[in-house]
Amino acid sequence: MSSAADLRSGAEALAAPLPPLLASAEQLAASVALGQHGRRRAGIGDSFWQYRPSHQGDPGHRIDWRRSGKTDQTFVADKEWQIAQSVTLWVDRSAAMRHASSNRLPQKAERARLLALALASLMIRGGERVGLTGSTASGRGLPPRPGETQLTRLAQALTEEEAEDYGLPGHEGLPPHSRSVFLSDFLADPGPVEAAVTRAADQGIRGALLQVLDPEEQSFPFRGRTLFESGTGALRHETLKADALRQRYLDRLAERQDRLAALARLTGWLFTTHVTSEPAAPALLWLYTALDQRA
């Protein structure tokens, strides 16, 4: 059994990233004007929309005991306005996202977490419910909820890292007819992303794809002998003439971005690319506006 000292040390280590991340996210969110969201939209009423299994943290008064009495599971009756207010985030936390070409730049994962949490802060200030869907590998997520406590939960979940080289979006916890945001470098096999977004669109979910890249992934500045290695070291490729690969790489990157843009057009989502050497505020404003347009 862990000693009290070990428990305290572990808790402090776990909580250490939260205050800086929350403070940075709140500061970034403050740079974007708060718009009108959620229940204040015209035409959104209180009519029943769907039953869903209850989650830890759902208040007792929201449980529909008549529906729950028919099974061994408890259910919550979500209302139309609650669904319309829900925003679910997927943030790629794989090893590939822990890349930064310079110690003067943030890792892609750091920038994605910052943008996701700042967006969540804006949404929650506007009275919306924000949640997190896990990857297909981890399956971890948070159901959409309102309030400042949820912002702390999101910050805690976003500090967790995943062991896989590349992240694959999950689809758990995406309420039909809600909104969603996927943040990733999208450099892995695009098939799972296309499947997840298509499935979400079939459920009436609209949203945005934000590709987060390091500057060297955008420009491929390598020359001569170069060793390319994945985040986990599982994939390696060494070449003596890296500059000879530049045009092929740039062509494939452009092809990937065109494919993501086409996916967005087909499903009613929006797509753009953000490079970590650029300021974070314009990317946050783009996300905020994209969700507003999808309402």
Rank of each mutant, 00 (worst) to 15 (best):
V87S: 11
P175E: 07
E148G: 12
A163W: 00
Q36P: 03
A137D: 14
L284A: 11
R206Y: 07
G167Y: 06
V76H: 11
S94F: 02
T273S: 12
I205P: 03
Q293D: 10
E164A: 13
A280K: 03
A242R: 09
S138R: 15
E216W: 10
A244D: 15
E128W: 02
G43H: 09
P215A: 07
Q203G: 05
E278D: 15
E161V: 15
T267N: 01
R67K: 11
L117K: 00
R111P: 02
G127R: 09
H177C: 09
L89M: 06
D251Q: 13
L158A: 04
A195D: 01
V76K: 07
R62N: 10
T289K: 12
R246N: 12
S2V: 08
T74N: 00
S54A: 13
E160V: 14
L270P: 00
G167V: 07
S3V: 07
F222R: 02
A15T: 12
P143C: 01
Y288E: 14
L14F: 15
A283T: 02
S178T: 11
A157F: 12
Q211G: 08
D58P: 06
G167A: 13
G231P: 10
R39C: 08
D202I: 00
R113A: 10
D72N: 09
T71N: 06
G35V: 12
R223G: 06
L253F: 06
R62T: 13
A16L: 12
L132K: 05
R179H: 14
G207S: 02
A280F: 05
L119K: 04
I83A: 13
E110M: 09
D165P: 12
Q203I: 00
E217Y: 00
D6E: 15
A208C: 10
E194F: 03
M123K: 15
Y166E: 11
L270T: 10
H274P: 04
R66N: 09
G141Q: 05
R62I: 11
S138D: 14
Q107M: 13
P175S: 08
P17E: 02
L285Y: 07
A23D: 14
S101K: 08
G233W: 07
D6L: 04
L14S: 11
T267W: 01
L28Q: 04
L174H: 11
R199K: 11
V130A: 04
P192T: 06
A201G: 10
R41V: 05
R252G: 03
R129K: 12
G45F: 15
G43F: 00
Q56N: 11
A96C: 07
G131V: 10
G38E: 04
A137L: 08
S102R: 09
M97T: 06
V87K: 07
G38W: 03
A100D: 03
G167I: 02
P215Q: 15
G233I: 03
R259M: 03
R145T: 13
E148F: 06
E26V: 00
Q293T: 10
A77E: 13
E26Y: 03
M123Y: 00
P176Q: 09
L260R: 05
L117P: 10
Q27H: 05
A261G: 03
L270M: 09
T239P: 02
D6Y: 01
A33F: 01
E80M: 14
R199V: 01
S24H: 07
F271W: 10
D6G: 09
L89R: 11
E148I: 10
P279K: 10
G131T: 06
R8G: 00
A234S: 14
P17G: 07
T159C: 15
P279V: 01
